[in-house]
């Protein structure tokens, strides 16, 4: 048995943290939407995929760095999120019968539709961003290697989280909170519930858009890229507790670390088994996740 050096431990811990922050931001968008209106968006991975393609093509056409494209992609995704709410989700919320299943399968059908549209428009090829400042650059911290695109991505994720937490303290954030607590009562005090829901979807999509923009710096994009990240996002959100932002952050980092350690100790092909097992164990003890209200 080979000795595990302290450098290896740090390397694994760091790469787990960097990936974990991306998972956390993807999960934050999902969690936001769920917390607000009790809808699990099964097309979340497809939104991530669309954001990655948007970044890829904007980069290809205009030669702009993904970091500069960040606000553009976030704005596009915000608009898309609002459109999805107005076009589909608001209708699904109005259904009288069988609502839970209708919501699951409306977003699920949307996911299949988007995946098909992406295959039609972009083909099945794997693509990655050509020009970027950070591409393939690595910082060397005394023998621990930090790929710069990942580092930048996690920094952006932290900033995005700070933004989401700050938003919670504004007037709008309180309206959001109130809508979450009691969606019927808020109508009585002059909050336009429909508008709050639409903005909630916009923000959720923008959050996953930011994650996608940064992800494309070091991850290939294809029409099916969303599926894998989506499953991890569901696990993260359920582990942290649905609708809890802090839960998404902590669970995201935990999932990233467990994945990195499993890949190191067992086999890379089994890296997801570790995180799924941790998730199931936690859910046995806390059925509503680490931070969920019981």
């Amino acid at each position: 048995m080979s000795a595990i050096s302290i450098d290896t431990v740090l390397q694994v811990a760091l790469s787990g943290l960097l990936m974990g922050l991306i998972y956390a931001l993807v999960a934050a968008g999902l969690s936001l939407i769920f917390g607000l209106m009790d809808v699990v968006n099964f097309a979340h991975g497809e939104l991530l995929m669309l954001a990655m393609y948007a970044t890829f093509f904007l980069n290809l056409w205009f030669g702009l760095d993904p970091l500069i494209l960040l606000p553009v992609v976030a704005a596009i995704m915000f608009a898309l999120g609002v459109a999805i709410y107005r076009g589909l989700i608001s209708r699904a919320l109005g259904v009288q019968f069988n609502r839970g299943m209708v919501q699951i399968f409306v977003t699920f059908g949307l996911a299949i539709f988007i995946r098909g549209a992406a295959q039609l428009a972009f083909g099945g090829d794997f693509r990655s961003v050509g020009t970027s400042w950070l591409a393939n650059r690595t910082a060397d911290l005394h023998g621990i290697y930090v790929p710069l695109p990942q580092l930048a991505a996690s920094a952006v994720c932290l900033v995005a989280f700070a933004g989401l937490f700050a938003l919670g303290r504004t007037e709008f954030g309180r309206a959001l909170q109130a809508t979450r607590e009691d969606r019927d009562a808020v109508a009585l005090i002059g909050i336009d519930r429909d508008r709050i829901f639409a903005i909630g979807w916009g923000l959720g999509a923008a959050a996953v858009g930011v994650a996608g923009t940064m992800l494309v710096g070091f991850y290939y994009v294809s029409p099916n890229v969303g599926a894998n990240f989506a499953l991890i996002a569901y696990v993260t959100v359920a582990l942290g507790g649905f609708g809890n932002l802090m839960g998404a952050l902590v669970a995201g980092i935990l999932i990233g670390e467990v994945e990195a350690v499993t890949a190191q100790v067992l086999e890379p092909s089994l890296k997801q088994v570790g995180m799924f097992a941790i998730y199931l164990v936690v859910l046995m003890v806390r059925p509503r996740g680490l931070f969920g209200k019981l």
Partner: peptide, 24 residues
């Protein structure tokens, strides 16, 4: 052969039935 159109129809069918006929 047209790659993706099949999934689009399938997805749209699921969305349509779920919204228009929630009871199935």
């Amino acid at each position: 052969g047209a790659g993706g159109v099949d999934l689009m129809i399938y997805g749209a069918l699921i969305v349509g039935v779920a919204l228009l006929r929630p009871a199935g």
